[in-house]
């Protein structure tokens, strides 16, 4: 996976569990370095190994950690940029969901070698959404669940999220939009200065 993703995992582990846990996770990998560079690319296996190591060391289920990682990515003030770039996707949560189809292409516009997992959003008749995710890192769907929870909140929408792993590691996320104007949500200032 791209260094941006591995670096995010690194930041998540350091900020959530501390630098000692990160040192344990990374030394277990035997990579010969202890930090990821955001602008370099790494093998997919490395990301999978990081998560497996973290689950072992913290004795927490893998999927909980992945979901937690997703939440971290869009809520930590350090990565305000990620939340903002996602919010460019639409003016309300529904529009945002529809923009997920384009997310890998949008990401590539910014960083040409950033390959995000393929995403496909489907709106069903009952107003529910189904998000398909194909990733080289199994369980990436849980990261999306964590992200979607925060982003829904950001838009002020009340949603129910369910995750299901199908054949060939194809992951499905079911999104039920209960109330799109549940709360005020967070303001999105188009021209804000960040960083």
């Amino acid at each position: 996976m791209h260094g941006l993703i591995n670096r995010s995992v690194q930041n998540y582990v350091c900020d959530t569990f501390g630098k000692d846990i990160w040192a344990q996770v990374i030394s277990r990998m035997d990579l010969g370095y202890s930090e990821f560079e955001v602008m370099l690319s790494y093998e997919d296996d490395i990301t999978t190994g990081l998560i497996a190591g973290l689950a072992m060391i913290t004795a927490r289920p893998r999927q909980d950690l992945l979901e937690d990682l997703g939440t971290y990515l869009v809520s930590t003030p350090k990565l305000e940029g990620v939340r903002r770039l996602l919010r460019f996707g639409g003016i309300n949560f529904e529009e945002f969901l529809h923009s997920l189809d384009d997310l890998p292409d949008r990401a590539r516009l910014a960083v040409s070698d950033l390959d995000l997992p393929g995403l496909e959003i489907d709106e069903r008749a009952d107003g529910c959404f189904e998000l398909l995710c194909r990733s080289g890192v199994p369980g990436f769907g849980y990261v999306l669940v964590g992200m979607l929870r925060v982003i829904a909140d950001d838009y002020g929408a009340l949603v129910l999220l369910d995750h299901e792993t199908g054949e060939n590691d194809l992951e499905k996320i079911f999104i039920t939009l209960i109330d799109k104007d549940f709360s005020q949500g967070r303001k999105f200032d188009l021209g804000a200065r960040i960083g």
Partner: peptide, 9 residues
């Protein structure tokens, strides 16, 4: 605007 922000980052 998205591009300006993403590219700057």
């Amino acid at each position: 605007l998205y591009l300006i922000e993403a590219k700057s980052a």
